Amino acid sequence: MGINEAIEKYIDALKTDGKSATTVKGYAHDLKLFGAWLDDISSKGGIPGAGVSAVAKNTLEKYAQFLKTSGAAPATANRRIIAVRKFFEYLAKEGVIETNPAADLKTKPVQRQNTVKWLDRNEVGRVLYACETQPHAGLLKKTRDKALIMVLVNCGLRVSELCDLQLDDLDYNASLLTVRDGKGAKYRKVPFGKSTQAAVKTYLDMRESQSSYVFVTERGDQTTPRAVQHVVKKLSEISGVDFTVHSLRHTYGKNIADETGGRLEVVAQLLGHATIETTRIYVTPSMKELTKAAEAVEFE
């Protein structure tokens, strides 16, 4: 089987397994780069024969070394090495190749540091103020944007979960919000606080759309991740706070971790994480915290 055919087979398998579109796109990109590298060295006589069965362990080690010295960030190089490792693991499991030449492929050692960004209370306040004072925006848009930011930062939803949120998912009596189809098609309930409820109610009472979705565009259609990202980018510019949609989810995770004394199982359940390892970033000092500590002890 040719390398490109094998990559297509693997990408189709990822889609069938329910991997997110972002994950599938990432693997496709990384493996396309690997395929291009193989084609290049093959044209120079670096690989005898053809197809995935001709790819030997030493060839993959050369590729890993190429990535580690290519100038790419260590995290990027390691991600591409892991993509190749999982790709050949799949081919071996499916019987496309007899043995897995990538089984011992090693990533570049990197000291684990937390580069995730979350906002402090002052920054969140500035963002919410920007919602209410953004120029050239009508009252409905200002109200919608504030409700949208409140749900993201106070409920920790992913942008896709926010867009899919429906009116029936809001339980004001129980103060719970239901995510029916989270990452990995997982269902969960999230606390829906009074301040966030009030912001959402104000928006819903004001809008005229009959849509079953909570957040809609000015035309009344279901909002999209791209539309939400556009709102966030605008608010970032107005408020002067550098943040993204995911920064708000991280802010929620960090605040829950701090409030519960670092109980990762609580944070994982609220965020819908599959493993505790994903949640560990919220109890790992951020670069901002490390910088603040270093500045505090710096000699002048």
Results as ranks from 00 to 15, higher is better:
1 M>N: 03
4 N>Q: 01
5 E>M: 01
8 E>C: 07
10 Y>W: 10
11 I>A: 05
13 A>G: 02
13 A>D: 14
15 K>L: 11
17 D>C: 07
18 G>T: 10
21 A>P: 09
26 G>E: 01
28 A>F: 08
31 L>W: 04
31 L>Q: 04
37 W>G: 04
38 L>Q: 04
41 I>V: 15
42 S>D: 14
43 S>E: 13
50 A>Q: 12
51 G>W: 07
55 V>F: 00
58 N>L: 14
62 K>A: 14
63 Y>R: 00
65 Q>L: 15
66 F>V: 05
67 L>V: 14
73 A>C: 13
75 A>C: 05
75 A>W: 09
76 T>H: 13
76 T>F: 13
83 A>E: 00
83 A>C: 14
84 V>G: 01
84 V>C: 00
86 K>P: 15
91 L>K: 04
91 L>F: 10
95 G>V: 06
98 E>N: 09
99 T>W: 04
100 N>G: 11
101 P>W: 03
102 A>V: 00
103 A>T: 08
103 A>F: 11
104 D>Y: 09
109 P>G: 00
111 Q>N: 12
112 R>A: 11
114 N>I: 06
115 T>V: 11
121 R>M: 06
127 V>H: 02
127 V>C: 14
130 A>Q: 02
136 H>E: 11
140 L>C: 07
141 K>V: 14
142 K>H: 08
148 L>H: 05
150 M>Y: 02
155 C>G: 14
156 G>D: 13
158 R>G: 13
162 L>F: 12
166 Q>N: 09
167 L>V: 12
168 D>P: 00
169 D>P: 15
183 K>A: 08
184 G>R: 08
184 G>V: 11
192 F>N: 00
193 G>F: 02
193 G>P: 09
197 Q>N: 03
204 L>T: 07
207 R>K: 08
212 S>D: 09
215 F>P: 05
216 V>A: 03
225 P>R: 09
226 R>D: 13
228 V>M: 08
231 V>M: 05
232 V>Y: 15
232 V>C: 13
234 K>I: 15
235 L>S: 09
242 D>E: 04
243 F>V: 07
245 V>Y: 01
245 V>M: 15
247 S>P: 11
262 G>H: 01
267 V>N: 08
270 L>R: 04
271 L>Q: 12
275 T>D: 12
278 T>C: 08
284 T>Q: 09
287 M>G: 09
297 V>L: 02
